[in-house]
Every structure is written in C-alpha cells, then in structure tokens.
Design a protein around this nucleic acid. Structure first.
Length: 506
RNA sequence: GGCCCGUUCGUCUAGGGGUUAGGACGUUAGAUUUUCAUUCUAGAAACAGGGGUUCGAUUCCCCUACGGGCUACCA
C-alpha cells in the first residue's frame, strides 16, 4: 500500500430508491476512509439518461445524511475534482475513448441495436468480441475509407474496447485474493455510447483516475467486468495508479435465492430501501427503514455486521467503534441472506442502549402523528425511560406511551369483568379516598397503600392489580402499574379509577 | 450454455490439521416480572459429497454437487 491519501467513492446511479446493499457499500467505503483518515466521495453515475429519475440524487444524499455517512466531496458540497455528476463530465470521456481507438485498443462500431439483437437471437452464445467482431460493422472489419465515410456522415456509432486475444488478466481483490480471467472469454464492451455518454466501464476508470481514487469497493456483481476495467487502466497508461479493488459479497433474499430486490420487500413484508421512496411515475410508494421506525445507529450496525465481524462476540457497535475496528480481511466472501428478524433485534437493542433524550423528538412525532398531544418534554422523557425497553421499532412507542397522555379509549373488559365483585368496587372506591389524602406520590407509597387496603378488605392483591392496570392503561401491558400511577399523578389516577369503575360495573 | 465467485446450526457468523466446533437472531423449556415486554438459565440445531495430502482433516489440494453473479449503446 502506498502512502497516498486514501480516497474512496460511493457511486450510485440515481434511478430510484437506495437499496440496503447500496447503503452497505457506502458504509464500508466510509468506514475504510475514516479509519485511514481519508476522503469519502459521493459521485453520481447518471450516464444513462433513459434511466434517470428526478429526485433520486437528492434522495441518495438524504439517505447518506440520515445514516451519518457524510461525504467530503459531492455534487452538493463540491470539491477539488468537481463536477461529481458524470452527466456533467460528459465532454471529458470522449478524449480517452478516442485515444484508445488511435492506440488500437478500441474501435468504432456501427451496428444498430436491432442488428445486435438479431445476432443474439440467432447465434447461440453470441458475443461481440474475438469470434464475431470481424463479421460485424466496425472499424476493424471495414476499410479506413468506409469508416471515414460513415463517420463523416455522422452515422450513429459506439466505441468498443478491443479485448486482446489469449491473455490472462488477473488482480488481487482485497476480499477475494487472486482473481483471473481469460480475455478470450470477455466481450468487447461498449465504452462510449452513440449519444456520446460513456458507459459505466469507461466512466468508472476515467473518473477514478481523475479523482485520485485509491480503493474501490463495489458489489460482487461487478466482478465479471473487472478485466475490462483492468485493461482500461493499463491501456490508458495509469496502471500504477489503479485503485485496489474490493468486491463485496451480495445481500441475498431471505427465502429462495438471488439478490435481494425491492420486490422481495413487498412480498415478504420488510423494507429494502433505506428511506421510503415515492415513484412519481407509477405513484408507487416503497417503504424504507427510516419510516418504519429504525434508528440510523441500528441500521448502520446491522448493515455493518452483514458480511463483516470483528472476530469477537460483539454485535452492537457504534459508528466510532466500526471506524476503529473495520477491516477488509474480516469481510466474508459469501453472500448473506437478509434476516429482518435480526434487523429488528438490532433496533430494539439500540432503543434500549440510546438515551431517552436521543429518542425524544422521534417519539414525539410518532405520538403526534397519531393525534396524541405531548405538552411537556420532561414528562415525555420520563415516559420514554420507563417504556423504551419494551419497544423494538419507533412506532411501538405509540401503544406503549399513548396512555400516559390520554385516557384509554378502550378497555380490555374481558380481562376483569367476569371476575368482578362488589367487594372490588368497594375496594376501589375506598382506594380513591385514600389516594385523595395521599401527600407523597411515588411508586412505593402507592404500592404500600394499595396492599394495605387489600389486606384490610381481605382481597388478594393479585385480584386487584390487573383491574387497576386496565383502568390506567386500558390493556394488559405496560410497566409496573404503580410506576404508571406515579407518573400519571394523583388527579389523573383518581379520574381513571373512577372512569374504569364505571366501565367495569356497567 | 459460457465465464467468474462462493459453500460451518433455519439465518448471520467465529474457528481452524488433533476443539465437548463457539456466539448471535429465531425457536423450545424453565425462572423472574401478581400484565406484557425486558432480563436470566437451560435445550434442540451445522462443517454439501467424493477423492487425495497427513499419524490425524471441518480446516490444505483436486473433482463433483449445489448456490449466486455476469453474459445491454443499465449501472
């Protein structure tokens, strides 16, 4: 490894929502960069105009922000190697493609998409390369004169790399070690499209070079095209500056097999995108982790451990710990099936771990979205601290916290009514009186008073606790019932007992 | 089909020539919690198969099987 400053890039194409695999790639980039005191760059790969989706770039930027993966350079903040949007760099790619043509490493091809389509249909295993290129319309098969004529007539054409014959291209992947390919097996990939835009293959090499990228992380699906990139780095004369590659294992469907896709989320009922994505064209709304109530800390944590571990039993990591401990040689080679149950577990752990203060704003909006009025932040904080251990996702706070702010709308009467007695009615009427005189209002006092009265009335405490809970909460859940009463306060507790009594004896 | 990558409990994984193959999620049973959840304890649960190499392979090598990726003027 050289002593150059580490520079990595996350290079998504703005075609829609950001897949969790994409976020993980961004995360690994980020962790590596920060650990090495390097730069993390966001580059937008929008070379396919037909797939461009309005708003997708802003969405990606917001995802990164939500996750805390702030780029040092990006289209939004700029940087010394701007522009960071490939569509805005269009003019610079042609030069390199032409250079390759003049060196004999690339050539013009005039075949129409339809002709190629036909070849693929009619010729088994058709590949634009070694075997068939001479029979197609390109500057290798045509005469110089013919080529000039076509060019002069502005005939639509692409520039293709000319894969060399009988060579073995190999490189050392930081995760996989030695990987090699036979050039005869690789086709002549298009470098520059007919519209003048580069394909990924050209753009990634040119931009990684120009932006002085030192390490390139991408999904394993890119492995087969690595030889094209390797050759390009070589032909362009930049071999010494080629970044070190790392091909990350894929994230797979939890059932069956294959890459995890947006559809799987819809089918299996869990999010695949980091944040909810709204498709303006179809009107389709694809839910995201953020909106489902995940904490970014948990999302990052679960992504980090999907394909990486630190070699110990530790599973919960803060971002700083990840930065300190991340290591490429502890990234596994095999794809990982996504497990939503475990994802939820991570979130629950983080809700427990994080301070109530951190949750306050989020919980408040969960409650307010449901029409629950939260007047006092301090009270909310006490409530959060009492109940957060029982919440897995942020929306769980609604059920667990709502009754602290408003009287139960419904009562689980079936849990008490069948066993209700006049003696119990008497107990609670008497309890109201006692509470009314109570000057100290805390859990212990309440519990003592409650139990003393129960003994006096000769009713088992257990017979009374549940009714009391239902009066305050409405259902069979929540923290210790005296804790709830303590938080609710004297007036509210008495009110709820009275109201509950009315419901139970109706 | 071709090429490339991969393969330890259901899932994520640790380990690595000699281990009772460890942890986590989930699951099962129990304890605690006079609700529910948390928490705690215990249990079931894995080295794809076949050849080598070796005194000894789950570990190293090869083959097979299986899985995945790619095979666009998409990334």
């Amino acid at each position: 490894m050289s002593d150059k400053k580490v520079r990595v890039r996350f290079a998504p194409s703005p075609t829609g929502g950001l897949h969790l695999g994409g976020v993980r790639t961004a995360l690994f980039n980020y962790l590596f960069a920060k650990q090495q005191q390097g730069d993390f760059i966001l580059r937008i790969e929008d070379t396919d105009q037909s797939r461009y989706v309005d708003g997708a770039e802003a969405y990606v930027a917001e995802c990164l922000q939500w996750c805390g993966l702030t780029p040092d350079e990006s289209p939004a903040v700029g940087g010394p190697y701007a522009p960071y949007r490939q569509s805005e760099r269009k003019s610079i790619y042609r030069e390199y493609a032409e250079k390759l043509v003049s060196q004999g490493h690339a050539y013009y091809a005039f075949d129409t998409p339809e002709e190629l389509e036909q070849n693929r249909r009619e010729i088994p295993n058709f590949q634009y390369g070694q075997v068939y290129r001479d029979g197609l319309r390109n500057s290798l098969s045509l005469t110089e004169h013919q080529v000039d004529e076509l060019l002069d007539a502005h005939t639509p054409h692409v520039i293709r790399i000319k894969m060399p014959a009988d060579e073995r291209v190999s490189f050392t992947d930081m995760i996989r070690g030695q990987v090699s390919f036979e050039t005869n097996q690789v086709d002549d990939k298009v470098l520059l499209k007919a519209d003048g835009m580069p394909t990924y293959h050209l753009a990634v090499v040119v931009d990684d070079y120009l932006m002085k990228i030192t390490h390139a992380f991408r999904g394993e699906e890119w492995l087969p095209s690595a030889p094209v990139h390797l050759l390009l780095w070589d032909y362009l004369g930049w071999k010494a500056e080629m970044p070190q590659w790392a091909h990350l294992p894929l994230i797979l469907k939890p059932d069956g097999h294959g890459k995890l896709s947006k559809r799987d989320g819809a089918r299996l009922g869990f999010p695949v995108y980091a944040m909810t994505w709204f498709d303006g064209k179809t009107g389709e709304l694809t839910p995201g982790f953020r909106e489902l109530g995940f904490l970014p800390e948990a999302f990052i944590n679960l992504l980090a451990t999907l394909g990486w571990n630190d070699g110990t039993d530790q599973e919960i990591f803060t971002i700083d710990e990840l930065i300190a401990k991340f290591s490429l040689d502890r990234v596994s080679k095999a794809g990982a099936k996504f497990d939503f149950e475990k994802a939820k577990w991570f979130n629950g752990e983080w809700i427990k771990k994080v301070k109530g203060e951190r949750l306050k704003v989020k919980v408040k909006s969960v409650l307010e979205e449901k029409g629950v009025v939260v007047s006092e932040d301090e009270y909310l904080l006490k409530v959060i601290d009492k109940i957060k251990d029982r919440c897995v996702l942020l929306p769980d706070f609604y059920q667990q916290a709502a009754y602290f702010f408003e009287q139960p709308k419904e009562y689980d009467v079936n849990a008490v009514k069948p066993k209700w007695t006049d003696a119990k009615t008497e107990f609670f009427i008497r309890f109201i009186t006692i509470l009314g005189r109570e000057e100290v209002w805390d859990e212990a006092t309440l519990e003592t008073a409650f139990k003393a009265l129960a003994e006096e009335k000769a009713i088992k405490t257990g017979e009374l606790m549940l009714p009391f809970r239902i009066m305050l909460v409405g259902g069979k859940f929540g923290p210790h019932v005296f804790d709830i009463a303590a938080l609710l306060g004297k007036v509210e507790t008495i009110t709820r007992i009275e109201k509950g009594l009315g419901v139970f004896t109706a």
